[in-house]
Design a protein around this nucleic acid. Sequence first.
DNA 1: CACTTGACCTGTCCGC
DNA 2: TGCGGACAGGTCAAGT
Length: 293
Amino acid sequence: MPELPEVETVKRGLSTLIVGKVIKITTVRQSPKSFPNSESSVNEFLLNAEVRSVRRRAKVLLIDLSTDYTLMVHLKMTGQLVFRGEKQAFGAGHPNDSLVGELPDKSTRVVITFTDGSHLFFNDQRKFGWMRLLPTEKIAYDTFMLKVGPEPLSDDLTSVEFAERFKRRVNTSIKAALLDQTVIAGVGNIYADESLWGAKIHPSTKVGLLQKKHLEKLYEEVRYVLNLAIEKGGSTDKNYVNAEGKKGSYIDFARVFRREGLPCSRCQTTIIKLKVAGRGTHICPYCQKEQTT
DNA sequence: CACTTGACCTGTCCGC
DNA sequence: TGCGGACAGGTCAAGT
């Protein structure tokens, strides 16, 4: 599920919902995979801790605590972080835009209860996601954090640097390179397809065959698509929900993702689905012709 | 080192 | 209906 826009949406939601709250109880229902820290470290660094801030780096959420520990959370494909206030009747007539009913449910892995009686639920159907506690100062030295590429929406990332970073992957497809988190952070399968359509690049095209103008256009499109997706609250294909349990609406604005059989909005050619870099891939075969020389 | 493939899990959908 | 297989938004380990 969650790519950069979805994690950013959860981050913004949690920032207003849990900052300042104090953790009273944590219930781990599926350890150690979902939450590998020992019970003693959870007791020592999580209980009675106040939430200071919520950050995001790549697709990772960082919840900073007053104990100088940070709760790192990766939602992977089907993870959810859903907040419920004390008086919210669980599951009682939840609105149509909500995907989750009564909590905890079958997929709930961890429940964090705050002193005011509110709860944060970590749900994950496929169990790929995880959360773990780390001293805040050690986050930067985590193996993933050390190798992950720059934030694509950062003002610091110029189109020149963007293009530079792809040069070490000249012999692979542009789609595989976009999905490689060490090149650029945060792009996953949905926004890779959407950006490549915008830049009129076939996903199988070898990076080394792309001209400077192609990579400049891709840089613009990645930023445009990610910003639009954040504005729409992310994409809900199946499982994704924000911190309030509600769906995102980017899918309604998608140009190719999950639109096989429908006409391209630029040229009316029928959108097709193929497999590139081992992933389901959607293109307009007219707008996106593969470059082989 | 660059690159590809399979594994991790559960649920759902599609064809027989 | 039931069953088997393919597939799903991410990452990592192991393979060539």
